[in-house]
Amino acid sequence: MTSLPKALHDHVLNRIVDTFGMTEVTNENGGPFLPLESKLPMHEGSVGGMRKFTGGPLFQVLTSSIVVPAMQLDSHMIFAFMPSDSAVPHYTVDSVQAGGHHAFHLDLIPRVDIGSRLNYLNEVYQPLTEACEEARKIEGLEAAHLSPRQYAIMSPWMLANRATAEAFEQIMKPVDTYLDHWFGLVEKGISAEALEDVTPAELAARDKRNKFAIFNAEVDPVWQRIGPLVGQEDADKQIAYLREVSA
């Protein structure tokens, strides 16, 4: 039976790939372009992999799935990246089961300083307010333990929660609402009024700095746990791929 985190991951990934007609980049054996092998004595062999999809108006979609039954770990991450010089946010959703607990993270990652561009804030994020506030009222959710630095590099509309199984089943609605809104932003782009004086070069430079901050073992301690699980070399490779910027 497909787990709740895997079902959410597959639903979102299939919607993105189908909407934009994307193609998977595989390794020489036709599998994930970065297979992940266990380094733990309790589990031998594959624990998942990192997948890459390209095509359409996106730069790339990267996923990372790590499943270790011996640890009761079932983790799936999706990052849908726009080109570095685009003002359209990146879309991300994580879904996890660890032991008897579930967790998820959902956001549209800002591409500009939203504290200084009210028009961008209103156009890109304000439409998500109702869905965000309703999601936070779901019974069975508990705020995830994130540092102030982690909150600072994402958006205030981010949803990051631990959840009961019953609560986790209800998050599909906000996940799809955020995704539908993001599809609309990708299709129509960001208005000149919302961008004000920002240039493509500034967007690209910020994207590089922002990715360095987000995918950083000092900022996000999850990478300190992934290293021992799949080996530090493959953990570092994942970070490097996630930090990639478009030309």
Rank of each mutant, 00 (worst) to 15 (best):
I190E: 00
T199V: 01
A240R: 15
M158D: 13
F183A: 09
A163W: 10
D234E: 15
I153K: 05
E193H: 08
K237E: 04
E139C: 04
S3I: 00
L128H: 07
F168V: 02
E202D: 10
I66T: 14
K173P: 00
G31H: 06
A87T: 08
V25S: 14
A143I: 01
D220L: 04
M50T: 11
H101T: 15
L73P: 04
N14F: 00
A80G: 06
E169S: 14
S65C: 04
L159Y: 11
P127T: 01
V175E: 00
R243Y: 05
I190G: 03
I109F: 06
V245L: 03
E196V: 08
D10C: 06
A152H: 12
N14L: 05
L58P: 03
T129K: 11
K211W: 09
G48R: 01
E233K: 06
A143D: 01
L128Q: 01
P156H: 04
A103P: 01
I171A: 05
G30V: 04
D113A: 14
M77P: 00
A217K: 15
L13F: 10
D113R: 15
E44S: 14
G100V: 00
T129R: 11
S3T: 04
F212M: 12
H145Y: 14
P41R: 04
F104V: 11
V88T: 02
F81T: 00
D234M: 02
F215W: 11
D220K: 12
F53T: 02
V93Q: 06
V96K: 07
M154R: 08
S86Y: 01
Y151M: 03
H43N: 08
P32T: 12
Y91K: 03
M154H: 12
K137P: 09
V96A: 02
M42Q: 08
K137Y: 14
S246L: 09
N216F: 08
E24W: 11
Q60C: 12
E187L: 01
S75V: 12
K173A: 10
Y91D: 10
M154C: 12
P41T: 10
I239T: 13
D94G: 09
N210S: 15
A192E: 15
T199G: 06
I16R: 03
P32Q: 13
Y178C: 00
P156N: 08
A165V: 00
L121G: 09
W157E: 07
L62D: 05
Q232E: 15
R117Y: 13
H101G: 11
